[in-house]
Nucleic acid binder design. Structure first.
Length: 222
DNA sequence: AGCTGATCATAT
DNA sequence: ATATGATCAGCT
């Protein structure tokens, strides 16, 4: 297990040293065996890269590299570099939705992100998928405004007890989607009358259309 | 073909 | 139990 990087530059250098390598080679080096399938190992590649880079936050509600304030996200991409999936950000607070965007978990996690592209096409054997060149990103003014507007809209709906009628169709960049073991999971929330109720746990996700624009901008600058 | 709602594994 | 890491599968 590598030590945690001491600077952003060191983190980026380490991440870029992974570029071009296959998932199975990184796994072998860390003495990890491959899951039977991506269905059975959904988080495997992300956790593999966290280990390879020396992330520290575990399952805490903190950026992966706490001392650097950097969140690492592996992102499955097609041959043309476009993301194939949305990106999970964090759980949505359904019971105590007060607060300002600047202090939200969404804003803290997205303040600085290390994107690590990974070949994600379903036709490629998971073991054979290659890592791409990582990029560091912070939201620009426009991206930040979009994220804030989405967050405020979604949080307002939660606060007003309208989470049940809020779907993944809401939000330009950020969406609210189920985040649970299954559809029977329940979490405290706010009901239509403003009274406490039980509802399906949800998380904030970035739409693939948004991360596509982010990656385009990052790779243009490189 | 893209997207939404559902789901799988692991850490603490 | 609830956070993290995500991808799957079926519908539009």
């Amino acid at each position: 297990m590598p030590e945690t990087p001491r600077s952003e530059q060191e983190l980026l250098a380490r991440a870029r040293a992974l570029a071009g390598r296959r998932v199975i080679d990184v796994a072998t080096q860390l003495q990890l065996s491959m899951p039977r399938s991506m269905r059975a190992g959904k988080g495997f590649v992300g956790q593999l890269i966290e280990r390879a880079l020396g992330a520290t936050a575990g399952s805490l509600s903190e950026p992966d590299f706490q001392h650097l304030g950097v969140e690492m996200k592996s992102i499955p991409v097609a041959a043309d570099g476009r993301p194939l999936e949305s990106t999970y950000v964090c759980v949505a607070p359904l019971a105590e939705p007060a607060g300002r965007f600047e202090h939200s978990a969404v804003a803290r996690k997205l303040a600085r992100v290390l994107w690590v592209p990974v070949q994600g096409e379903r036709g490629i054997d998971p073991a054979e998928r290659r890592l791409g060149s990582a990029v560091l990103w912070s939201p620009d003014e426009h991206e930040m405004a979009t994220l804030r507007a989405d967050w405020e809209e979604l949080m307002e709906r939660i606060a007003l007890g309208r989470v049940e009628e809020t779907t993944a169709r809401h939000g330009v960049a950020l969406q609210l989607r189920p985040k649970a073991a299954d559809s029977h999971a329940r979490r405290s929330g706010i009901g239509r009358d403003g009274a406490p109720t039980e509802t399906l746990p949800r998380g904030f996700y970035l739409r693939a259309s948004f991360t596509a624009a982010v990656l385009r901008r990052c790779f243009l600058a490189v």
